[in-house]
Design a protein around this nucleic acid. Structure first.
Lengths: 254, 254
DNA sequence: AGATGTGTTCGACAATGTCAAACTGAGTTG
DNA sequence: CAACTCAGTTTGACATTGTCGAACACATCT
């Protein structure tokens, strides 16, 4: 592809840096990270600030993400067909299973959470729409990887980070797991990302037959497991829900 | 300020267009709107697509916002000090009042919702974090405008849009209302944005004494009004909550 | 004071992105 | 079914545009 606009790519790199680990960075930090002169970085930041994508902390002079991004993120959600079509079904899944529901899609080899329904009780829960979860350590991610072999192999080529003793870190083992997911039509994660947290998920397919997302539930093993295995009743709810959303998206009604 | 980077400003304009009314636009739509040749717009879009800020619908060829923005929006929230410090207090305000709580800040003459706690019951509610509310027709907005006279006069110079018969559309009347808000330290909106919806709010002040946000509750008049006036008990909770957050932000503990 | 660390400004240079015109392909229309 | 229209896309010459590195201003340490 000939001719991508340099300054926009650089601006995007800056925003990505600012949305990473350290959300406050100075001009020199960014310049160092990108290998650019600080004058150049300053110009980019000044423009990003004038359009509201970046804000400068008055005390420290450091830069952080700006408020305009929040509104754009929520606008993205409004236009996202997957989420819009899934709204009703995810609510009903949460009600039926009495667990929290998440819908995710693949983004840069990770799972981007596009919808989250709280577990229907009064306990405090934090919303993780917009979060990026590791694909190889979540049920949502396994479902998505299973149907995106190219992404899966790209991910497996890197080091699979370990989060708990149960995390799959071996590429070959991941490949076998994904084959099983493909065959059975659902995935489970038993404490592979967070100890004492279990999740299941099933694929959401669009009108072209592409797996465009995954929907699933997560919660503690006491409620989600029976004899160390996923509970068939809950699993059925999850699979039915995902199938319903797929139908809504125009997939062949099967 | 000499030298803002043209292509970044243009890219931001495109994103703003895509986050507006029509979330799917074609190259010619955008080019027409911006008064640029379509080749130029195409180049900008191609770059925005390669960095994930924009996606292209395969069927229609039209462009829409991209998933990267969702993650950046949520990263913005994580780094937002106002929201972080307000988390606990907003929860407790929702519990005490048994109503939904919103925290907002001023963004481009509108109220950007940075936090939202659902009303503590099981009814379905939709999250409006990231939404932009009109400032002159909400309690949050009035509180913010009252302490940002420059923004208030800029807003009043335009036409104040009417949403219900109760919306304040007269600049002079808005100014009087804001003076009262300043004097009494809180604001109310009685069906001025949505018929049958009432909201109150109080200011959140930072360590420099600047009003950086507002926190308030909203709900139906049956619960929020007594004799057509804000209920003193609920109002006191709101004001105490906002004061607590202000203290948390380092405002002089008064 | 001096030294180092910020973020910021400046102006010359040429690399960079812009523009208009030409291209492609889908969908319509006579 | 060819001609037309409208979409998105590609192209290459041109000069506008953004880049760079050095100098600046202002802190905060030593």
């Amino acid at each position: 592809m000939p001719g991508n606009i340099q300054s926009i790519e650089r601006a995007a790199t800056i925003l990505r840096l600012l949305s990473g680990r350290n959300r406050r960075l100075g001009v020199v930090d960014i310049a160092g990270e990108m290998g650019l002169p600080k004058g150049t970085v300053h110009g980019l930041l000044r423009t990003l600030q004038s359009v509201g994508f970046v804000e400068q902390d008055e005390d420290s002079g450091k830069y952080q993400l700006g408020a305009a991004l929040l509104h754009m993120g929520s606008s993205y959600l409004d236009g996202n067909e997957l989420r819009t079509r899934a709204l009703n079904w995810s609510d009903s899944l949460a009600t039926r299973t009495r667990e929290a529901v998440r819908i995710g899609t693949l983004h840069e080899e990770q799972v981007l959470v596009v919808h989250h329904v709280f577990r229907p009780d009064d306990t405090l829960q934090s919303l993780d729409v917009g979060s990026l979860l590791p694909a190889h350590a979540t049920a949502l991610g396994k479902v998505l990887l299973a149907h995106h072999p190219y992404v899966a192999s790209a991910l497996a080529a890197e080091r699979l980070e370990s989060y708990t003793p149960a995390t799959i870190t071996d590429a070959a083992r991941l490949e076998r797991e994904l084959a099983r997911v493909r065959a059975q039509g659902w995935a489970a994660d038993i404490g592979e990302l967070v100890p004492g947290q279990v999740s299941y998920a099933a694929p959401i397919v669009d009108r072209r037959g592409m797996t465009v997302g995954a929907m699933g539930i997560f919660g503690p093993p006491e409620r989600l497991l029976a004899a160390r295995q996923p509970r068939p009743d809950l699993l059925a709810y999850v699979r039915e829900g995902a199938r319903a959303v797929s139908r809504e998206l125009g997939a062949i009604p099967w």
